[in-house]
Design a protein around this nucleic acid. Structure first.
Lengths: 342, 342
DNA sequence: GTGAGTTACGAAAGCGATTTCGTAATGAGC
DNA sequence: GCTCATTACGAAATCGCTTTCGTAACTCAC
């Protein structure tokens, strides 16, 4: 079932059928209706590869997970952003291509080659930590890209992220209001991107509130996972000199830390207040429920889709967008009400 | 940068280059090396659309979320299965295509048309409840399909799911051993597929243990989400006549039920023991931690990829596979130890 | 030296669309 | 009745690759 079949059935040339598919004006109304009817009846859809070959447009958006995420799809935040992105970009006429084929491209990092191979119309780059330099090749290419949690540079690129620079300020302010004065941070070793922004803004916030920055209250774990937080907290406890409240740069770290603290008989929040960041699904279920900062993943994904669409179709080069996040106060910081049904 | 460029640079015909790309034997070793070197240096990769057009193979696997899932990608279990599937199928040389474009295909349900349009080599069908009949068109087609949590019928299809029929038996046995004799079920209204299997096997298990099946101990909610479980439990409590222990067919239902029970002053597990199913990420964090049945999502995804590969490349028509699940005893059933670090 | 078999390569016909450009038919204006 | 636009359509080139088949050149046995 191809365009030739339809043309034959309708008694017209394939050029005419193609024009009807693409809404050209130089087709008679009667002919148009006749052909449309046949296409409808036969369920004919033009081949996407033939179309892509001829037009160099694929209606495909590439999904690039950059960095050392050891778990693409099951990252608690990114998958939500991606889900929202997928819904919106679908409405705009695009489908999603997940690159995963590591045999054809010997190296996972050759993002640009992958994009060219499939002729994606644009792509979304979702970043973890320690992003590879090869991402720059992609960003500097002519392919429109939108970064999530990564500040892409390049003329056809832009990016979106939560207001990470403000997140820590909200946290510090709340902890201050709760009466805490000894605040510490659980960060990520050699962290890059968003967690670094969070960490830096935490220092700034401490300064602006006139709170002490004791080096021993700044601890770093090698990764963002729960186990890392658990181990880091264990060592921290062993080293002594704990703050009264701590801000973990991800919820998973916070959860691991909470577990370790409780194992050592520390009560949360009475002995140690803990605040996370992200508001992942499990956050309301810790004991006590985790106070955290909620990223507006729905909005990030939706805006990313709209912006990428604009970049592809209107050659618009939008500036980076920062999406506001929200402090969610639960029990782990000892501040207030515990959490109920959302 | 296309095959013609490479051919010109190497001083050979495009046919020869193509043969080298596709490992034909009738190419001289010297020529082969020369051309390979040029391809390497220029970073040339053949266009996937041209290749697909010529071969009718795309190296793409379509991802179909069937049924009334209101949240494709953020379904706690399916996303894990998919992640594992993606890793394995990537090693086998395939990339993943997520259909999301609702504008081109007026109706979301026209799965077969989507697959044909992109000429996917196979597809994975992930099912929620109330699967649309149009899935059958796809299953009966010549496109190899593998179902997750859905018993696909058709010659080029097979499916994988957890041993749902045994899950309930494990649960009932454990609850029985813990001393409970009054067991109830929190299921899903007009549920289809796996939750129905779980429910039926629960009844069977009750019978085989000689336990009573009281109709008022079988309650159904409209969906699988937490809110549904919450509301269903509220009504159940209002109606009176609660069992001593209940099996919820999904963890989210169990979590909602637990929340409602606690709000009414019921202690879990002292007044009401609760067991869920799936072992989602949040399950260890409920208070008390949720006893549940863990689906081996990694194995399901991996085997699905291997089976689909076999179906595509070796015309093998494997039989359905059932993957064993594991009872994870935590605090919510009152049976034993609480949960520690995984 | 000759015929048969092997090796290495290229010409050319697809695959299923798009798009340019040419042209026959029609209608309008005078 | 003649010219000139306008409308409606089709022929054919093109996109980048695969694959069949034909054929030189070379090897080998005799």
């Amino acid at each position: 079932m191809n365009i030739k079949t339809i043309a034959a059935m309708a008694g017209v040339s394939i050029a005419t059928v193609s024009k009807i598919i693409n809404n050209y004006s130089d087709v008679g109304e009667e002919t148009r209706q006749r052909v449309l009817k046949i296409m409808e009846e036969t369920g004919y859809k033009p081949s996407s590869s033939a179309k892509t070959l001829a037009t160099k447009k694929s209606s495909l958006i590439g999904v690039v997970f950059a960095g050392k995420l050891n778990s693409d799809l099951d990252h608690p935040i990114f998958v939500k952003v991606l889900n929202s992105f997928k819904k919106q970009i679908g409405l705009l006429g695009y489908d999603l291509l997940f690159f995963s084929n590591e045999t054809f491209f010997q190296t996972k990092e050759d993002y640009l080659a992958r994009c060219r191979h499939f002729q994606v119309d644009g792509c979304i780059v979702i970043a973890g930590d320690n992003v590879e330099p090869s991402i720059d090749d992609l960003a500097r290419s002519d392919i429109p890209c939108i970064g999530i949690d990564i500040a892409l540079g390049g003329s056809n690129t832009t990016y979106l992220m939560s207001d990470n620079a403000k997140i820590a300020a909200k946290v510090v302010e709340h902890l201050y209001m709760c009466g805490y004065r000894e605040l510490g941070l659980l960060g990520i070793d050699r962290n890059s991107g968003v967690t670094l922004i969070r960490e830096n803004s935490f220092r700034d916030a401490l300064r602006s509130f006139g709170l002490p920055l004791k080096p021993e209250w700044f601890v770093h774990s090698p990764g963002y996972e729960k186990e890392c937080g658990y181990r880091a907290m264990k060592e921290w406890i062993a080293a002594g000199s704990l703050p009264r409240a701590l801000f973990a740069v991800t919820d998973l770290l916070a959860m691991g830390a909470m577990e370790a603290a409780k194992e050592h008989g520390l009560r949360v929040p009475q002995d140690l207040a803990i605040v996370g960041c992200d508001d992942i699904d499990a956050a309301p279920f810790t004991d006590p429920p985790l106070t955290t900062v909620r990223q507006d993943t729905e909005k990030i994904g939706r805006l990313a889709a709209l912006m990428l669409f604009d970049m592809i179709n209107n050659q618009i080069d939008p500036s980076a967008i920062v999406v506001e996040s929200e402090l969610i106060v639960r029990g782990s910081c000892g501040g207030a009400r515990s959490d109920r049904m959302a």
